[in-house]
Amino acid sequence: MADSVATSSSVDLQAFEFERVLDENPLTVLGTLPSTTQRLPAILRIEKTALASSITPADLSSTKLIENNDIYSWHFGWLKQREDVPDLKINVVFPATEVHIRKYSKQDIILVHETPQLYARIVKPYIDSFPASRTQWVSDILSGASEASKILFSSPAFALLPDMKWDLTTVPALYLVALARDPALRSLRDLRAPHVPLLEAIRAEAHRVVWERWGLERGGVRLYVHYQPSYYRFHVHVVHASQAGLMGMTVGQAHLLDDIISMLSLAPSILEDMTFTYGLGNQHGLYAPLVAAQAEVPFVATAAQDGH
């Protein structure tokens, strides 16, 4: 009989037993948490929450001078505990599989070129190999079985809600996600010209929601799509335009929704036909086959390399 596993709502973080650090940025640690009859692997992703705008020196419990020079000085500070301002946000994956452990481990990155041929031979079979259970949590959101109270907009085509990365409070750190309902849409590669109305609707509703709820004008948010994505159900990220340095905004991985719409309007099958270049971590399931296949990708030397 399979071991009964505690639900996420009943996870006791005080019972977490540390094993090792998977990554330092953000701090991600592997350990175990108790289930009904045994301890199972658990991943904790620990991040500092954004400082509330209401924080003042009165909220400091103590300070320590680091250095001073003329009119400048540097200090360490410790905040008093405030129930309305948590210090940390902790994301938990429990029970964690070996796939999760690899995903959240620090990785060496290499740039790969994915031609349409390599997509058809290597990437699409990899995507198709994932069981529906891997994205059951997306289906639960779309069906209303999970996070129903967080839905900001819902239609027969997609739903818009806060991403788990956001603390739901700090507007400059705003992070939403639009989830497409069509399960046949797995990634950027599946988009064609007939999907433009869907993409335009996501863009329009995202701008409407952030204006009505948080007063962000058009241009106040950045909408983009990942390739490769972290999960294979098509979704669009919506983040505050002032955010910079997010891990998912790396060149090659993030593709602006506006650009995608423009490309599909000009060439209906361009995302099917083009070669994508992106970084791939050495723990990713596509790393070994795509790296091995790079010799098949034509390399065009520059004029300088040709000696011209």
Results as ranks from 00 to 15, higher is better:
residue 75 H to Y: 12
residue 75 H to S: 13
residue 75 H to K: 12
residue 75 H to D: 11
residue 75 H to A: 09
residue 76 F to I: 01
residue 77 G to L: 06
residue 78 W to S: 05
residue 78 W to T: 11
residue 78 W to C: 05
residue 78 W to H: 03
residue 79 L to P: 02
residue 80 K to S: 09
residue 81 Q to F: 15
residue 81 Q to W: 12
residue 81 Q to Y: 15
residue 81 Q to C: 10
residue 81 Q to T: 14
residue 82 R to F: 12
residue 82 R to C: 14
residue 82 R to M: 14
residue 84 D to H: 07
residue 84 D to T: 10
residue 84 D to V: 03
residue 84 D to F: 04
residue 84 D to E: 10
residue 85 V to S: 13
residue 85 V to P: 04
residue 85 V to L: 12
residue 86 P to Q: 06
residue 86 P to G: 09
residue 86 P to R: 06
residue 86 P to C: 10
residue 87 D to Y: 00
residue 87 D to Q: 03
residue 87 D to A: 04
residue 87 D to L: 03
residue 87 D to W: 00
residue 88 L to K: 08
residue 88 L to Q: 10
residue 89 K to S: 13
residue 89 K to D: 05
residue 89 K to T: 09
residue 90 I to D: 07
residue 90 I to F: 11
residue 91 N to S: 14
residue 92 V to C: 02
residue 92 V to K: 01
residue 92 V to W: 01
residue 92 V to G: 00
residue 93 V to D: 03
residue 93 V to E: 05
residue 93 V to Y: 11
residue 93 V to A: 08
residue 94 F to H: 15
residue 94 F to P: 05
residue 95 P to W: 07
residue 96 A to T: 00
residue 96 A to Q: 00
residue 97 T to W: 00
residue 97 T to Y: 02
residue 97 T to D: 04
residue 98 E to Q: 08
residue 99 V to P: 08
residue 99 V to W: 13
residue 99 V to M: 15
residue 99 V to L: 15
residue 99 V to H: 15
residue 100 H to P: 02
residue 101 I to N: 08
residue 101 I to F: 11
residue 101 I to K: 07
residue 102 R to Y: 14
residue 102 R to N: 15
residue 102 R to H: 15
residue 103 K to H: 15
residue 103 K to T: 05
residue 104 Y to L: 12
residue 104 Y to S: 04
residue 104 Y to E: 07
residue 105 S to N: 12
residue 105 S to E: 07
residue 106 K to V: 07
residue 106 K to M: 11
residue 106 K to I: 07
residue 106 K to Y: 09
residue 107 Q to C: 13
residue 107 Q to N: 10
residue 108 D to I: 14
residue 108 D to R: 11
residue 108 D to L: 10
residue 108 D to C: 10
residue 109 I to S: 08
residue 109 I to D: 07
residue 109 I to H: 07
residue 110 I to D: 05
residue 111 L to S: 09
residue 111 L to D: 06
residue 111 L to H: 06
residue 111 L to R: 06
residue 112 V to I: 14
residue 112 V to C: 09
residue 113 H to A: 12
residue 113 H to P: 02
residue 113 H to R: 11
residue 113 H to C: 08
